[in-house]
Design a protein around this nucleic acid. Structure first.
Lengths: 244, 244
DNA sequence: TCAAAAGTGTTACCCTTACACCCATGC
DNA sequence: GCATGGGTGTAAGGGTAACACTTTTGA
């Protein structure tokens, strides 16, 4: 019989992208007063869960992701483990745990993963209990140490998109070059020169132009591209550039 | 009273550098047959320990490092958490655990840290119970999943030295440019052009020449340099170069 | 006709790369 | 004198960075 391990969990920071902004999926946490029925507090958390007996920690992360988004085979990467003793000691968190999960240990180490999804494929609804997308630039009040977890996930993502083409995981299958640029700008928080950016992307053999253009846009229709991990892996070369 | 958490540990991959090679500090593990007194097996592990109640996971890593090397304030970085159910299931590992640490859980998640030390300052002796340095290129038989842990630590180190000047943590306070080059070659496993490498290092303001040269070497004495994190932090600029 | 994004080229500069010779020292 | 590394410069090529105008479409 599967049991939860009461002192180890995983947390998934699910990133999505739309409207020139990077989003994170969060779940609302609302604790009701047992007597008055009034909410004692409301805040948000990233989706997490304890790992189960007999379960690899990576599988626990995949399970959480599947429960939350309904999707399999999503880009998922472990980025950091969080194990400070203070991480679940705030008043709201203790209240929540005592009333909702009385068996949970006083100390919980959590392994953080971030996941990159095509936001257009994941529209949380009632089935995804109280989940919704928030722009990373305007996060609501967060429970536990989830502010720190999201910050660190974003840092890891920023590093990653500079040295691997993982950012394309956030785009729909077909995308335009402007979308790629706006995505990079959103992740890195900088402005990039349009012509130089297009030059750079255009020289990547694994960003492949389609014979298809936008429709119904009030400006010159842009060409669509697709990204190929396959071509990427076949053509990539190791680089050893010291740069700091 | 401090107690150990029986399903969470830290493991420290301690890197050192000397004689143009990168080394890892390992501890010998030898299980004796209770009846015959003969060794049942011998292998090596990186230094780890379970975390204690009331202890931050980072502090546990520092504690292990201090016990192992006698040193405080050493460069230490978390690089990955290992949580596969199979990681302590091999026969030797189970035998060892059952006889030596009967209270340990069947499942142990470990958080991996790597640490960079000046090998000349850490010469393991009897005080460091069965510890010794091994070249990363010639590792002995390793217990648990420690081969994987060391491999992943090395990968993390390889990434890190290309974008931050952490490699200098492996050198003595005073070093020559050839030492820096050989160090990079050892970490990355490539050969680097001497003149170009010197040019690159020389333009780093935080690698500061001393008015001091080598003594007693059978060739032109080389100039000594020191590294300054202080100057580095004051002069570094964020870079947003997409390169993959 | 206006708004919005698409698409396009050149120049200057810097960094990277490849490459060879003489020098200082200890033995 | 010989072995070992120290120290140095240049030229070619590639990549980065800065910068402006015309085109296409829908409303």
């Amino acid at each position: 019989m599967e049991k939860i391990l009461n002192n180890i969990s995983v947390d998934c920071v699910i990133f999505g992208y739309a409207d020139d902004s990077l989003y994170v999926m969060l779940t609302r946490r609302e604790l009701m007063d047992a007597k008055t029925g009034q909410p004692l507090f409301t805040d948000y958390t990233v989706q997490g869960h304890h790992i189960l007996t007999g379960e690899n920690v990576d599988d626990a992360a995949r399970r959480v992701l599947k429960e939350k988004t309904g999707l399999d085979n999503i880009y998922l990467k472990q980025f950091h483990a969080f194990g400070d003793i203070s991480r679940i000691q705030h008043t709201n968190d203790q209240l929540w745990l005592k009333t909702t999960y009385p068996d949970v240990s006083d100390y919980v180490l959590t392994v953080g993963y971030y996941s990159l999804v095509d936001k257009t494929k994941v529209n949380p609804d009632e089935a995804h209990s109280f989940s919704s997308w928030f722009p990373v630039a305007e996060l609501p009040e967060l429970g536990y140490d989830h502010r720190e977890i999201i910050d660190k996930a974003l840092e890891a993502l920023q590093s990653a998109v500079l040295k691997e083409p993982v950012a394309f995981e956030l785009l729909p299958e077909k995308f335009t070059l402007l979308q790629v640029q706006r995505l990079y700008e959103a992740i890195l928080g900088v402005n990039l020169d349009r012509r130089n950016f297009r030059k750079k992307i255009n020289q990547m053999k694994y960003v492949i132009p389609l014979d298809e253009k936008q429709n119904g846009v009030p400006h010159t229709p842009a060409q669509y591209f697709i990204f190929s991990w396959d071509v990427y892996h076949k053509t990539k070369k190791e680089k050893y550039n010291i740069s700091f």
